[in-house]
């Protein structure tokens, strides 16, 4: 399968191309951990969720929908809407709003419907 068709845009993009900054910290990060989002190091507050970390980082989307490729960000933050789905440590469709960050965690944004058997690229 053509790589550029199944994984366009962010897999090849050099950075995370921040969207409009919708959230800012109440106080500077202390006690931070570092995870990787699409291979880029991103700092997070220990004990927060992956969804909060992505919104602080200002990613323009955490997934593109499998139906139309439309961008989505977390919507409800309490586990009901499933908009915040991302790949975490190689397992797809994890709810970012219910998953706590961990140092060294590997998060990948989802690009439509991922081919089920394709090995995850670290």
């Amino acid at each position: 399968m053509n790589e550029s068709v199944t994984r366009p845009a962010f897999a090849h993009s050099p950075g995370l191309q921040p969207g409009p900054k919708m959230f800012s910290d109440l106080a500077p990060l202390t006690d931070a951990v570092t995870l990787s989002v699409d291979g880029q190091p991103v700092r997070a507050r220990a004990g927060e969720t992956v969804a909060a970390c992505l919104l602080r980082a200002g990613v323009p989307y955490n997934r593109l929908t499998p139906v139309s490729g439309a961008p989505r960000l977390p919507y409800c933050m309490i586990g009901h809407c499933f908009e915040c789905l991302v790949e975490i440590d190689g397992i797809g469709n994890r709810q970012a709003c219910l998953t706590l960050v961990r140092d060294g965690m590997k998060v990948r944004r989802q690009d439509g419907a991922p081919p089920a058997l394709e090995p995850s690229v670290p």
Partner: peptide
């Protein structure tokens, strides 16, 4: 992206120490 519920924003305050900006 950029549409969220009030509960979501409150959750980000309580559990993420993030406040909306812009």
């Amino acid at each position: 992206p950029g549409v969220m519920t009030a509960g979501a924003v409150q959750t980000l305050l309580k559990a993420g120490h993030l406040k909306p900006s812009g």
